[in-house]
């Protein structure tokens, strides 16, 4: 396992908890609405080739939230500040689910931030046919049920989702849910202007989707693929919303092939 350290990055007075590990060129990972699940097998594999920066978004986990930060565009603006603070520019980025929406917003509005972009089960674009599952009117247990095609094929499922939470961890989970509500309530999990802005993106971009994603339909991946010139869409069979957890080996291969 690659060693990683945790640090608080000060972005204009806001402390952002960041896991950093590995070696090589920098790679930014942006987590989804549920929060940062820690240094998973798939992240470790990426860290063997790259220096991984894996922050908890402002308002999530141990990261602070500036009062003004209420929307995904706010989050994108904040992350360009974060990258500037760290002296990072033109780096590789992978965004998972809501993190994919943030990464897309950054790529569409700040062209020099990223050199390559990978979106995994990303929200941000409203599907025309299906619907993004409404995670805000169901319980966390119901969300978890929707997340996986078959939890038995996710080697880290027990460690991540079945462990007993300490009171502090339970509070963090609740705060994370609140932050997701803050960011994604309305319009729900999408921004009507995003697909139009994505026409500006001119870096290599890959979408990765579980074919059986019950939270963000595959149609969203197709719409991203249409919106971004020269992108491709890789679909993983028998896989739900989190390929990096449910099919880590396949995910790692797809990611490393693209990022190389």
């Amino acid at each position: 396992m690659v060693a990683f350290k945790e640090e608080m990055v000060d972005v204009g007075g806001t402390k952002v908890h960041t896991m950093k590990g590995g070696s090589g060129e920098p790679l930014l990972l942006l987590h989804g609405a549920g929060g940062n699940n820690g240094w998973l097998k798939s992240i470790d594999a990426l860290a063997e080739k790259y220096t991984v920066y894996y922050p908890s978004h402002p308002g999530y986990g141990k990261s602070e939230r500036p009062e003004w930060l209420e929307t995904i565009p706010d989050m994108a603006a904040f992350y360009t500040w974060y990258l500037e603070t760290l002296g990072l520019e033109g780096i590789r980025a992978v965004g998972f689910s809501m993190g994919g929406w943030i990464a897309s917003e950054i790529a569409a509005t700040c062209g020099h931030s990223f050199s390559k972009l990978m979106l995994v089960g990303a929200v941000g674009i409203k599907p025309n046919v299906a619907e993004i599952a409404d995670l805000f009117i169901i319980s966390p247990a119901q969300v978890l049920e929707l997340m996986f095609h078959d939890p038995n094929q996710a080697p880290e499922y027990q460690d991540i989702y079945q462990k007993e939470l300490t009171p502090e961890e339970a509070m963090t989970a609740e705060t994370n849910r609140e932050m997701a509500v803050r960011l994604c309530w309305k319009p729900y999990m999408h921004d009507p202007r995003l697909a139009n802005l994505l026409a500006r993106v001119n870096i290599p971009t890959r979408m990765v989707w579980g074919k059986n994603d019950q939270i963000v339909p595959l149609e969203c991946g197709e719409l991203y693929n249409e919106a971004i010139k020269g992108s491709d869409l890789v679909v993983i069979e028998n896989c739900g919303h989190s390929p990096q957890v449910e099919k880590p080996d396949e995910f790692i291969k797809i990611a490393l092939d693209f990022l190389a």
């Binding site: 805000f136 009117i137 169901i138 319980s139 609740e174 849910r177 609140e178 997701a180 509500v181 803050r182």
Partner: peptide
């Protein structure tokens, strides 16, 4: 009625 209806997050 489900708790998530009566006491939504936030």
């Amino acid at each position: 009625v489900p708790k998530d209806y009566m006491l939504p997050v936030g």
